[in-house]
């Protein structure tokens, strides 16, 4: 059972990488990954919320009565989400306009609530922060990868820069909603293929 701190971190990058292994938090994964920039921005927001909420939940785990713990988690998470929203409005307004409603919706993202309930409520603050950081980075990597795949083929650009030159005719299907499902499915199956030796 006893994992080292490093293991707590690295498990979020492969063994428990949220969208692909835990298959959690799919709503933003599907909705905002139209471009790399969106994916990365969303990921960073989630990392911040996850680390902060994990830390606070873990610090307060002996005070929070178990009967109202979900309510407490939600209050904590919602606070940090609004903090992220305000900061993003103040310092990255164009990104805020693109992510729109999905920033407030981090509150109900299963990954964040899931880590608070399943990990931070049972472990010490240091481990919880590391866990939140690892899972968050894993989430960011997945979103960025999916965003990159969809942006490169769907719009022919990467971070807004043209990849294939002007003669490329973009595969528009990829940046539309059904394309998100197909891409996610293909990536999931590739992960399983690589994992099930």
């Amino acid at each position: 059972m006893a994992k080292t701190i490093t293991q707590e971190f690295t498990k979020g990058l492969w063994d428990e990488i949220p969208p692909f292994r835990l298959v959690l938090g799919l709503c933003p994964v599907l909705a905002v990954t139209k471009s790399v920039e969106n994916g990365l921005g969303m990921g960073v927001a989630v990392v911040f919320v996850l680390v902060c909420s994990n830390m606070l939940v873990s610090l307060l785990r002996n005070i929070i009565p178990s009967k109202v713990r979900i309510a407490c988690f939600i209050v904590i998470i919602a606070t940090f989400v609004i903090v992220v929203e305000l900061l993003m409005q103040a310092y990255a307004y164009p990104l805020f306009l693109k992510l729109g409603i999905f920033i407030p919706l981090i509150v109900v993202n299963c990954v964040v609530l899931g880590r608070a309930e399943a990990f931070a409520y049972k472990n010490g603050p240091v481990r919880s922060i590391v866990d939140g950081f690892g899972i968050g980075i894993g989430f960011t990597i997945s979103l960025t990868a999916l965003g990159a795949l969809r942006e490169v083929f769907g719009s022919g650009t990467f971070f807004g820069m043209s990849v294939f030159g002007p003669s490329f005719q973009p595969f528009t299907f990829m940046v539309e909603a059904p394309g998100a499902f197909v891409c996610l499915g293909l990536m999931l199956s590739l992960m399983n293929l690589a994992g099930n030796k």
């Binding site: 307060l60 005070i63 929070i64 009565p65 109202v68 309510a71 407490c72 209050v75 904590i76 919602a78 606070t79 609004i82 903090v83 305000l86 900061l87 409005q89 103040a90 310092y91 307004y93």
Partner: peptide
């Protein structure tokens, strides 16, 4: 616990909102 948590949360948010309001207005 819930009351303390909520008031802490409210205080934090009020502080951050106050700090970023001008910047947000400018960005908008």
């Amino acid at each position: 616990v819930l009351t303390v948590l909520s008031s802490f949360s409210g205080g934090l948010l009020a502080a951050i909102r106050g700090g970023t309001m001008e910047k947000i207005e400018y960005q908008q």
